[in-house]
């Protein structure tokens, strides 16, 4: 049951990244990183035990949201969902990410929650995470012993578990520059507008005219982690995207996923609508506004 009383912990407020890394190196699994806190505080209410909280609040330099046509998009660890919504470049070059941010929670939450926090939470429902997964993002992790990049394909190991080591700080997530014919989109289904997804989907297609050259299709809430729909991707690649193809694909999605019953929906329903969702998100990517 939840508590009304905030538990005691040491609040650590490093002012630089190296300082933060030092703290992580000494506290290891006895430290929890606090970004926007929108997941962490909910966990705390339910008595999630923590000893030391390392807040990112005072660290400067982690709030970079930068687009470079050659390098792609860099999203620093303190970039909020609201920052994404405000970015014209994200809206133009990475519609999937922008769409996943626009529908995210409420203004208060968007102003607080971070994109990197969404990824590190490793929820199978994470909206921005899903968009970034389809867009081919990778996470930059840093510790006192150096830096490494991990593609999101390899990042979520199981429910709530990531490839991050205890002493690592996620510095940023980066997304490759959009190819010439890149089209992307995100869509989700919820019980009411402000909600976590009951099922969500994101696509990133490399198009050559009507022909799909490469595809990344990802889905959430259909397994312990976000998943790629490999069979769907294969069916799309090298093909011209027609209504018939989309119908055929939407009929096969169920074979790529393994949903369960939970409080937000049922396995049965998710299996039924997954194909519809994929069809619609592809249409959304190709046609912009219209999603039928």
């Amino acid at each position: 049951m939840t508590s009304r009383v905030m538990q005691d912990f040491n609040l650590l407020l490093p002012e630089t990244v190296p300082e933060a890394l030092g703290l992580l190196a000494s506290h290891k699994d006895k430290a929890t990183i606090l970004a926007g806190g929108t997941d962490l505080l909910v966990a705390l209410k339910f008595d999630y035990a923590i000893d030391n909280v390392i807040s990112l609040a005072l660290i400067s330099g982690l709030d970079e949201l930068a687009f470079d046509p050659l390098l792609g998009l860099t999203i620093g660890a303190k970039v909020t969902i609201a920052d994404i919504v405000k970015s014209e470049e994200v809206k133009q070059h990475y519609p999937a990410l922008w769409q996943s941010a626009v529908i995210f929670a409420t203004p208060q939450l968007r102003n607080t929650a971070t994109v990197v926090g969404n990824i590190l939470r490793a929820s199978p429902a994470g909206d921005c995470s899903l968009a970034l997964y389809a867009l081919g993002g990778k996470v930059t992790l840093e510790s006192t012993s150096g830096r490494r990049d991990v593609y999101l394909d390899d990042f979520w190991l199981s429910y709530g578990v990531t490839a991050r080591q205890d002493d690592e700080l996620a510095i940023a997530v980066t997304v490759p520059p959009p190819g010439q014919g890149q089209k992307s989109a995100f869509r989700r289904m919820t019980r009411v507008t402000e909600d976590l997804s009951k099922i969500n989907a994101a696509v990133c297609l490399q198009m050559d005219g009507n022909k799909c050259v490469a595809a990344r299709v990802a889905m959430g809430c259909v397994g312990p982690t976000l998943v790629r729909l490999i069979n769907v991707e294969k069916s799309l690649e090298g093909e011209e995207i027609t209504t018939d193809l989309l119908q055929a694909i939407s009929d096969t999605v169920a074979s790529d996923i393994n949903p369960i019953d939970d409080i937000r929906s049922s396995a049965e329903y998710r299996l039924k609508v997954a194909g519809v969702l994929v069809k619609r998100v592809i249409n959304l990517a190709l046609n912009g506004g219209s999603d039928q």
Binding site: V192, E194, D195
Partner: peptide
């Protein structure tokens, strides 16, 4: 009880 909080008890909000 599985939803004795606003996380999973869903009411119509302003945008609904």
């Amino acid at each position: 009880c599985l939803n004795n909080s606003f996380t999973d008890y869903k009411m119509f909000g302003p945008s609904d």
